[in-house]
Design a protein around this nucleic acid. Structure first.
Lengths: 146, 146
DNA sequence: TCAAGACTGACAACCATTGTCAAAACAGCC
DNA sequence: GGCTGTTTTGACAATGGTTGTCAGTCTTGA
């Protein structure tokens, strides 16, 4: 197995502050959807949504745009269990995790300094350096449980 | 987004104790590789490995076998960053996490009762029930860092 | 306005994974 | 050892998310 350094996880702290990109209709459209969407959404879903709105954007463009945003640290990425990448505008600037509803996808962003420290110390203990981690909590939200 | 209840994460506790399966050459071969392999391995890699050994096993069979093992809780599954599912014979019986080397895949299994409790309490706080979680730590192992 | 180059979109290509289904292997039984 | 019902296998097709391609279009800075 080979884990790509750059894309290993969305929680890796970025060094470069984000290159400038051109403002285009397509990117604005994707941005708008992300702004309106509370929960994680897949590239496919986003593409379909744009299509129904009439603001057609090519699928490849949606993928590219999301990837760019992710690279710039402007959206959170995580993999749904099906292996599909799902995206979400991140609200917190700092490193954080998610509590995600299994059935509707409702998400709560969570800061966990304790966990951060724990992860760091565990890695140190085993001599691992350059550490990052992924942590997501899944459950059934109150609304879906009702 | 739809997160499948059954496969949401490898850390969900299994209720059923594992159905009996027939012993076949193919399953034995997969088992053997898993026994010998310390680190996470993908279905594709395992398949290729078997092929080079002469113990040819169909790709579909490899997938099915791994899936069965995973369902029975006999192997750990996690998704590499590329979205590929990777498997590993789990050593610990109880719920645990992994510290994985980004470059060589070397893995350390980790128990983190603190984290378990934290995850549970966070979920409770937000009214989420039926909680499970994923947590993996990535880093560069001492050998690769040298 | 203009040119350079970034961006887009339709489509093909990729690749992990799953579905299909007839043939083969297994386990229990005689 | 054979028989038989069931499980398992494997070759192949199909699926589906994602990425590559490349000519045409749009942005931007001059």
């Amino acid at each position: 197995m080979r884990i790509d350094r750059e894309r290993a996880t969305q929680v890796t702290v970025r060094d470069q502050p984000a290159k400038e990109h051109r403002r285009t209709r397509q990117r604005a459209a994707v941005d708008e959807v992300l702004d309106e969407t509370e929960d994680f959404i897949s590239a496919q879903e986003l593409h379909a949504l744009l299509r129904t709105r009439g603001a057609g954007v090519g699928l490849a463009t949606v993928y590219r745009t999301l990837q760019t945003l992710a690279d710039d640290g402007r959206v959170d990425v995580l993999r749904s269990d099906a292996g599909e990448a799902v995206y979400r505008r991140c609200v917190r600037e700092e490193h954080h995790h998610h509590l995600v509803c299994r059935s509707c996808g409702a998400t709560v962003e969570i800061a966990g300094p304790t966990v951060e420290r724990w992860a760091k110390s565990v890695a140190d203990q085993h001599g691992y350096t350059d550490v990052s981690h992924t942590l997501e909590i899944f459950g059934t939200c109150p609304r879906c449980a009702a």
